[in-house]
């Protein structure tokens, strides 16, 4: 089963990373990043039908709202992953920077939605 393989991979990666951390911290960091990437690649196959379903639903109406939400979710997950990876490497400033970049990009994605809301409010009041 997929979840058991993912769990085993996560445990093995963690143990190897811990064993290398004392002597070779750089390699331990690279191993933890590679392990995380492998976990995400493993679940990517499961995401494809879900993304296809979301696209079909977005096509049924309210495209802008649903697309914006999905994009912001993607930005949030990517920024979270980058920030956590930086924290693993002990780089707090880089983690904060990654989170800030993620928030700015999420805001940029939400701006058209905000504009649509303001336009709808104005048209209703006129």
């Amino acid at each position: 089963m997929l979840i058991i393989r993912i769990a085993v991979l996560a445990v093995v990666g963690g143990v190897l990373s811990l064993s290398l951390k004392k002597d070779q911290p750089a390699f331990a960091f690279l191993l933890s990043v590679a392990g995380t990437a492998a976990l995400l690649l493993g679940i990517a196959g499961q995401m494809r039908p879900l993304l296809g379903y979301l696209q079909a639903l977005a096509g049924s109406g309210q495209t802008q709202s649903i697309q914006c939400l999905v994009r912001v979710l993607g930005i949030a997950l990517a920024a979270q992953f980058a920030a956590d990876t930086c924290r693993d490497a002990g780089m707090q400033a880089a983690a904060a920077g990654a989170e800030l970049c993620g928030r700015v990009l999420a805001l940029a994605q939400a701006l058209p939605l905000l504009q649509t809301l303001v336009d709808t409010l104005l048209s209703l009041l006129q």
Binding site: L73, A106, L114
Partner: peptide, 14 residues
Amino acid sequence: KCLDAVAVLGFGVL
């Protein structure tokens, strides 16, 4: 919180 804010914007438009 960020996702909730975007969700409520989209819901308001809807």
